[in-house]
Amino acid sequence: MEIDPFIFRLSIFILSIFIGYYVVWSVTPSLHTPLMSVTNAISSVIIVGAIIAALAGTSESIFNTSSIFGFIAIILAAINIFGGFLVTQRMLQMYKKKKDKKK
């Protein structure tokens, strides 16, 4: 009997939880705020689903009920992607060592 592809995805999911567990514990506490903003940005990879939904409309009706939800989701996720990565970058630029400051 073949293994259901769902089981493979579940395996990826569970292994990723473990990776997340070990990676996040090694994050230094002083960077917990950038951690939150960057996780925010990467979870917006949900835009992938939004793009599929938005492109599902036919050329006669680009905006049908389903694709409109996709288009709105694109805006929401894009705000998050750009906002999340840029604000993280802005924060990380501020973390400097003593040496850098005196230059």
Partner: peptide, 24 residues
Amino acid sequence: IGFTLENTALIITGALVGSSGAIL
């Protein structure tokens, strides 16, 4: 949503963010 779309990038990210928030 990653499971629904059968998309590994979304599944991996979801798991990472989920465990990150839980640890915090």
